[in-house]
Structure formats: structure tokens, C-alpha cells
Amino acid sequence: MPTYMVFSAPGALTAEQEQRVAEAITAAHSKSTGAPRYYVQVILGAGEGCRRFVWGQPSQKQLWIRGDIRAGRSDEQLKDLLLELMRGVARAAEIDEEDVWIDLNEVRPTAILKFRTVFPPAGREKEWEESLPAPLREKLGITP
């Protein structure tokens, strides 16, 4: 399950912008990787109260996203994901694209556990979903 943590200056985003940023990240990840939307979690306000510096000065403009995603994507998929994230988040937050900074970290699927099971390799989501118990599939909105 990809986890995206979004860091910005305190008060830089309204609640509405935060909702739009979360939706933009979810949409970009699902579109670029083919992973289901329910895989994506977004944490906003990460580090609330901490101060961020860029070039030794307090950062007011940059919105930084740190994402942990499953390893196994091609360089082209990663590039597409980065660009989709940048564009969507800039629109959602109403900031310049150059002020969206993203660092993605790839995690081996065997090091990820969600829903009481180890995650599948990229591209094997369907068979993983089919192996889940029926009540969990229903909860996640997975139809047979």
C-alpha cells in the first residue's frame, strides 16, 4: 500500500486544498501504476509544528511529498507517476509545479503487510485480491 506523506508550511493549505491534494495523489498513483485506489493512503500535516528549511531558510512555498511505494515499476512508470503527482498536486494546492518536490522510495512487496497479509508484487494485484476473505473483499468494494 503506497503511503504518501505531504509536508508544507503550517497553514499553507486549506482543508479543501488538503482534500484535493489527497484525491490528486490517489488518482495519480492509481492511473500511473494500475494499483487500486483503496491501496493509496495520504498523510497530510505530517510533521505539523516542525519547521522545514530549504537553502538554510524557512520554506514557505515548497510542498514536499515523500512516498513509499512497492518496488517493481519500470523507470517509465516512475517518471509518469512523478509527473502526474506534480501536476495534480500543483493544481489541487494552487501552487506552481516547480514548488512540488517529490521523493519516492521503493519498498519490496514482501516488506509490506496490510489487511493481515503480505502485499503482492506489482502487477499481481488481481490474484492477491481473489485470495482475500470474502468479508474483506466486500469491505474494500472488490467485486468478483
Rank of each mutant, 00 (worst) to 15 (best):
Y38H: 12
P10I: 13
K114V: 11
E94I: 09
W128M: 02
L82Q: 15
I69A: 12
P121S: 12
Q62K: 14
E127F: 00
G49K: 13
G45V: 08
S131Y: 02
P36Y: 05
T143M: 09
A28F: 02
K31E: 08
D75H: 12
V40C: 02
G34I: 01
A134S: 12
N105E: 11
M1A: 10
K31Y: 02
R20D: 08
Q60A: 09
P58A: 11
Q19G: 10
L132G: 00
V89G: 00
T110R: 12
R73W: 05
A90M: 11
G123Y: 05
Q57C: 08
A35M: 04
C50I: 14
I102N: 05
R37T: 07
L44C: 03
L83M: 14
T26L: 01
P58E: 10
A90K: 13
T117C: 00
E138G: 04
A111T: 10
G123D: 05
G67W: 05
V40K: 00
Q57G: 04
G34M: 03
V107Q: 02
S59A: 11
D96T: 11
E106L: 14
G123K: 07
E129P: 01
R91Y: 07
T26N: 02
A12D: 09
P10H: 08
E98P: 02
P135F: 01
P109Y: 00
H29I: 03
W64Y: 12
G67M: 07
V118E: 01
L136C: 02
P133C: 02
A15I: 09
W101I: 08
I112G: 01
A92P: 04
A122P: 08
R124V: 00
P144E: 11
D80K: 14
Q41Y: 03
Q77N: 10
W55D: 15
L63V: 14
E18M: 12
M1E: 07
A134V: 07
R37G: 00
I25E: 02
D68T: 13
R20C: 04
T143H: 12
L140S: 01
E94P: 01
E94T: 09
Q41R: 14
K114F: 05
E129G: 05
D68E: 12
E97P: 04
L113D: 03
K126Q: 12
T143V: 13
V54R: 09
E48N: 11
P2N: 05
S74H: 06
V40T: 07
A15L: 10
E94M: 07
A24V: 06
E106Q: 15
E130F: 06
S8A: 15
A9L: 09
V107H: 01
G49Y: 06
R124M: 03
I142R: 04
Y38A: 05
L81E: 07
L140H: 06
L132R: 04
V42K: 03
R91V: 13
E106C: 10
I142G: 00
A22P: 03
L132D: 04
V54C: 04
F119L: 15
R108A: 14
R51A: 11
E138V: 06
R87P: 03
R116W: 10
R37I: 05
Y4K: 12
V107D: 03
R108H: 08
G45S: 07
P36S: 09
G34N: 06
E84P: 04
G88N: 11
I25L: 01
G141Q: 08
V6D: 04
W55Q: 15
F115V: 13
E84Q: 15
I95S: 00
R20S: 06
M1Q: 12
D103V: 15
D75Q: 15
P133F: 03
E98L: 07
N105K: 13
R108E: 15
S74C: 07
